[in-house]
């Protein structure tokens, strides 16, 4: 995280980016990762990660929604009637997701087509709702905003790792479908007729398993395994 540069600028206004605030962003990246530790927001993690490019777009969309829904809820937290708070939170989230959908249609129609229903499913991405309940309802707007960004980043991090693994082994490419598209490993002639990229391991033929949704489960399972072996305090006792 490059929070250090921002921190220098805001050193006078200490509470704006103090140690506590920085933790709000860095914690969800590892120790309190929404996917691997809090078990939140897994559906979309699986569905869109067969390629990196949609994963990145999805990650940005989720960061936007978590950050701004946290901010809005925190601003309204003293006015939201307890009895209907879930519905109020959902309305806020659904509005932001609709904004994301309209924006995608406006700026990048092909990727909107590709993500289709999964954009809508950000609403029911438990991370968003979970953070509203656990954090934004009880904290000040600025800190809630940071918490939203942090959790969005933690989620996006896993999404992109899974996407990279699946795309390289499943298709031998990276960023397929975007302007950055490149062929990394495997037989070049199979996909791009006149590619100039030199590729490694010409003998490699694509592993179809990695493209299937099930592969995402395996990859996340293994990420959890690695994370918990390094960080034994997270190990499940049950």
């Amino acid at each position: 995280m490059s929070t250090t540069t921002q921190e220098v600028k805001q050193v006078e206004k200490e509470p704006l980016f103090g140690k506590k605030e920085r933790r709000l962003i860095t914690d969800p990246l590892n120790d309190n990762n929404p996917i691997t530790v809090q078990i939140l927001g897994i559906c979309s993690a699986l569905a869109v990660t067969s390629l990196v490019y949609p994963s990145v777009v999805m990650a940005i969309a989720v960061i936007f929604v978590t950050a701004f829904s946290n901010l809005t809820t925190s601003l309204l937290r003293n006015y939201i009637p307890k009895s209907v708070r879930m519905i109020v939170q959902l309305i806020i989230i659904a509005t932001l997701v609709t904004v994301v959908e309209l924006m995608l249609k406006y700026f990048n129609y092909p990727i909107y087509k590709q993500l289709s229903v999964y954009i809508g499913l950000i609403i029911t991405n438990c991370i968003v709702m979970g953070r509203l309940e656990a954090f934004a309802m009880a904290n000040k707007p600025w800190r809630s905003f940071l918490d939203g960004i942090g959790n969005g980043l933690g989620y996006g991090l896993i999404l992109i790792i899974v996407g990279v693994v699946r795309e390289i082994f499943g298709k031998g490419t990276l960023f397929a479908g975007s302007p950055l598209e490149m062929k990394l490993i495997g037989n070049t002639s199979e996909f791009f007729i006149n590619t100039t990229d030199s590729t490694l391991f010409g003998w490699y033929s694509n592993n179809n398993l990695m493209v299937l949704p099930a592969a995402a489960m395996f990859v996340i399972g293994i990420i959890i395994w690695i994370q918990r072996s390094r960080n034994t305090k997270l190990v499940d006792i049950s």
């Binding site: 996340i220 959890i224 190990v235």
Partner: peptide, 23 residues
């Protein structure tokens, strides 16, 4: 089960296997 995989990690891998079975 290896300690790091206990609980959640194993659940993920099991679900992946079940998903393949359902395919």
């Amino acid at each position: 089960v290896p300690p790091g995989l206990r609980g959640l990690g194993m659940a993920f891998i099991l679900t992946g296997l079940m998903g393949m079975a359902f395919m």
